[in-house]
Simulated assay, not measured.
Amino acid sequence: MNAASKKQAGRGHSRLIGLQAVIACTAMGWLLLAPPAQGQMTLVPLTASAALTLPATVLHGDIRLIGTGPLPGSLLVEGRRADFSGYLLHHATLVLATPPGGCGAESQA
């Protein structure tokens, strides 16, 4: 193995380590944002239409509205994810975990 091929192999290892770091950070981010089966969650509308219909959707179901979320149009709710997540995903709304004692503590509904 000559010096040029050793240098190229070193770059390949660096790229592999970088890719692994990106995958690990993405996985950790997803675990932090994954909503619980029951408890507080943040509903984030992805379209203007979803933002308009989200409050009525929340009030219609077995979901307790806690307050407004940190993102425009988002809401903090409490309930069971299984009761509404399928509907919300089909209507361009993300269901995310809410940090404990976090968002919306000062904006009670």
Rank of each mutant, 00 (worst) to 15 (best):
I66W: 00
L75Q: 03
R15S: 00
K6D: 04
V58W: 04
L75P: 02
K7V: 04
A9V: 09
A34S: 09
G69F: 03
W30S: 05
T47L: 02
F84W: 10
K6N: 07
V44S: 02
S107P: 05
R81Y: 11
A9M: 12
L33R: 02
T93C: 14
G101C: 06
C103M: 09
L94D: 07
D83V: 03
T26L: 15
L89M: 08
P99C: 01
I66S: 00
T98N: 05
H91Y: 08
P99R: 02
V77K: 05
D62C: 01
L16K: 07
A37C: 03
M1I: 10
L71M: 11
T57L: 12
T93D: 07
Y87L: 09
P70Y: 09
A34I: 03
N2D: 15
C25K: 15
L75S: 02
M28T: 10
L71A: 12
H13P: 00
S107I: 11
R64N: 04
G29C: 08
R80I: 07
P99Y: 01
A56Q: 11
L94F: 14
C103V: 11
A27K: 12
L75V: 01
P72L: 07
A37N: 05
T42Q: 10
P72W: 03
W30D: 07
E106I: 05
L65Q: 06
L76D: 03
Q8I: 15
T53D: 09
S85K: 08
A56C: 02
T93A: 11
I17G: 04
C103W: 12
M41P: 00
S107F: 13
L46F: 07
Q38I: 06
E78P: 05
G12V: 07
P45M: 07
Y87Q: 06
F84M: 12
G104K: 04
E78V: 10
A34E: 09
T26K: 14
L75N: 03
G18V: 05
Q8M: 15
R15Y: 01
F84Q: 04
K7H: 04
D83W: 10
R15G: 00
N2A: 12
D83A: 10
P35S: 11
Q108T: 06
L76G: 01
L46K: 14
L89V: 12
P55I: 06
C25W: 13
V95S: 11
L19R: 04
P72M: 02
H91S: 12
L16G: 01
D83T: 05
Q20L: 13
K6P: 00
G18W: 06
A3M: 10
L94G: 04
T53V: 09
L54A: 14
A97F: 03
L19H: 02
H60R: 15
S85F: 13
L59D: 14
M28L: 15
G102N: 13
R81K: 14
G29A: 14
K6F: 08
L54Y: 04
V22C: 06
G39R: 02
T42F: 00
I17A: 13
A82G: 08
G101L: 12
L76W: 00
I63P: 11
A3I: 11
Q38C: 10
A82I: 14
G39K: 01
T68Q: 08
G69W: 01
A34M: 06
A3R: 13
G29K: 08
Q40S: 13
